[in-house]
Amino acid sequence: MTVSPTQRGHGAPRPDNMTHVQLTWIEKRVEHWIRFGRIAKDEIVDRRRRIVSFRPGAIFAFVRWAANDFGTVSSRIDVVRAVSAGEPFTTLPFVLPGGDILLTIEGWPKVSQVLSHIDAVDYAGVDPCDTAPDHWRHVHNRIAAGHQPRAYTMERHRAWLKRREIEG
């Protein structure tokens, strides 16, 4: 659900204008972690929880996994662009206020496929948080349709950097 900042329901704008993500780690039960992204602030809440914050425009991957006595009950990965004050955004659990969701995949086989794709981007010599946002949308659409996403090459990355430079 995309909402405008005035519809957000969280009161006043965030004083630090950052996007905050609550991470939880309860061994073999609930594991939330950041796969990539430039963390601007990291606050330890207690021994199982912390809050990481991202500046507007930062792109990060947020992984959520949960299990019970019988095995995995939920696994999900979201690639999100942190929004500036006044920008519309989509709400997302554990992310305040929300963000521009570039990719959202559920189910361990598909999540694993996304994690492998992130590794391939790393291997190509590109930091995944610097990858073109449109590429993450492409990865989402291809995996959701049951197809293999195109590789993100250094050539594609250079084209993205030039496009960003022109757009200004």
Rank of each mutant, 00 (worst) to 15 (best):
H135V: 01
R50W: 04
M1E: 09
H147L: 11
F62C: 01
V114N: 00
G98H: 03
Q113C: 01
L115E: 12
H10W: 05
A132I: 10
I39D: 02
N17E: 07
V3W: 06
T2I: 12
R156C: 12
P15D: 07
H135R: 00
F70A: 13
V30N: 07
I166Q: 14
G11Y: 12
V30I: 04
E87D: 15
L96I: 07
T72H: 11
V79A: 08
D16M: 05
P109E: 08
D78A: 10
D69W: 06
D78T: 07
A151Y: 06
R156Y: 10
V52F: 08
H147I: 07
I34R: 00
F89G: 10
S74W: 04
D42A: 12
V114H: 00
V52Q: 12
T72L: 11
R55Y: 01
A159N: 03
T91V: 05
N17S: 15
S116R: 13
G71P: 00
I118Q: 03
G86Y: 09
M154Q: 08
P149G: 03
R150H: 00
I34C: 03
A66I: 03
I44H: 06
G57L: 11
V45Y: 10
D130Y: 14
E27M: 06
P56F: 06
F36E: 02
G99M: 07
S4A: 15
H138A: 01
P88R: 04
F54P: 02
D42C: 08
M18I: 09
D42P: 10
P149C: 08
I77W: 02
R163D: 11
A145T: 01
G71A: 12
V3H: 09
G146K: 03
H157P: 01
R158A: 13
P88M: 01
R48D: 08
I166P: 02
F70I: 05
H157E: 11
D127W: 11
M18N: 05
V126D: 00
F54Q: 06
P13C: 04
D46F: 13
R49D: 01
P109A: 03
K162Y: 00
T90D: 15
H140R: 11
R164V: 04
R142E: 11
R14G: 09
A132M: 13
W25K: 12
I118P: 06
W25R: 13
T6G: 08
G86C: 13
T104S: 15
I101M: 02
W160F: 15
E87G: 07
R158Q: 15
T131F: 05
A159M: 06
S75M: 06
S112A: 14
A66N: 12
I51M: 07
T19K: 00
K28T: 12
T153Y: 01
R38C: 05
V63R: 09
E165M: 07
Q22A: 15
P13H: 04
L103H: 02
F94H: 08
H157R: 14
S84V: 02
A145H: 04
H147T: 06
Q22K: 14
L161P: 02
N141P: 03
G11Q: 09
M18H: 14
F60E: 03
G11N: 11
E155T: 08
T72A: 10
L103Q: 03
L103V: 05
H20V: 06
